[in-house]
Simulated scan of single mutants.
Amino acid sequence: MSDATVRFFVRLVHKVSSSRVFAKSAPHVIPAVDRGVHRLTRGRVLLSARLLPGVILTSTGARSGLPRRAPLACMPEDDGASWVLVGSNFGRTGHPAWSHNLLAYPEAFISWKGEEIPVTAQLLTGEERAAVWGALLVFWPPYATYQARVEREIRLFRLIGRDDEG
């Protein structure tokens, strides 16, 4: 595929994923498909990861205390041991449920490339959040459209791998 074709495809995906129609339909379709494919492939495949890197987050329900699984796009950080999750909720008004869960119970697990990794979530604020937000907009420009669509500040979490062996 030529560079021009790839650039065209990337622009098209950015435009579609920034649309209000996508914001209304994607939260119902993408997670269900991702969970099914992830289960069928025993954690090796996430369809949405063909566009963006992705994890399956297993957190503890803020109200229920039960395990909750959510397929999410992520931005892996350069250290190879941390990931950024964006609580964009596809530009919808409320914060996603998984972000409430991480605020209540920051210890969680992610499935990353078929491997279960224990992580601790940190809500990013202030200058640290601003720096990561700038990197995210380069990584996936539609996040700017999502933020412009809502009054709330989109939550950013850094997931840091932890050693549960000790």
Rank of each mutant, 00 (worst) to 15 (best):
R63N: 11
S64R: 14
S64C: 13
G65L: 14
G65E: 07
L66K: 15
L66A: 13
P67S: 05
P67G: 04
P67N: 06
P67M: 14
R68K: 14
R68D: 02
R68A: 04
R69L: 09
R69N: 06
A70P: 15
A70C: 15
A70H: 11
A70D: 09
P71R: 02
L72N: 01
A73L: 12
A73I: 13
A73F: 09
C74T: 13
C74R: 03
M75K: 01
P76R: 06
P76K: 06
P76T: 02
E77G: 03
E77S: 08
D78R: 15
D78Q: 12
D79G: 01
D79V: 13
D79K: 12
D79L: 10
G80A: 10
A81C: 08
S82G: 04
S82E: 00
S82N: 04
W83E: 00
W83G: 02
L85M: 10
L85Q: 00
L85G: 01
V86A: 04
S88Q: 04
N89S: 14
N89I: 13
F90A: 11
G91K: 00
G91N: 05
G91I: 02
R92N: 14
R92C: 07
R92A: 13
T93S: 14
T93A: 15
T93C: 10
T93V: 14
T93Y: 10
G94E: 12
G94K: 15
G94P: 02
H95E: 13
P96F: 02
A97K: 05
A97E: 10
A97D: 13
S99T: 11
S99K: 01
H100Q: 10
H100R: 11
N101D: 13
N101K: 09
N101A: 06
A104R: 12
A104S: 12
Y105Q: 05
Y105P: 00
P106M: 07
E107L: 12
E107I: 13
E107S: 11
E107D: 14
A108Y: 04
A108C: 07
F109W: 15
F109P: 04
F109A: 06
I110M: 07
I110G: 03
I110L: 08
S111N: 09
S111G: 14
W112R: 02
W112Y: 13
K113H: 12
G114W: 15
E116H: 08
I117Y: 05
I117P: 02
I117D: 02
P118E: 07
P118M: 05
V119G: 02
V119D: 02
V119K: 03
T120Q: 06
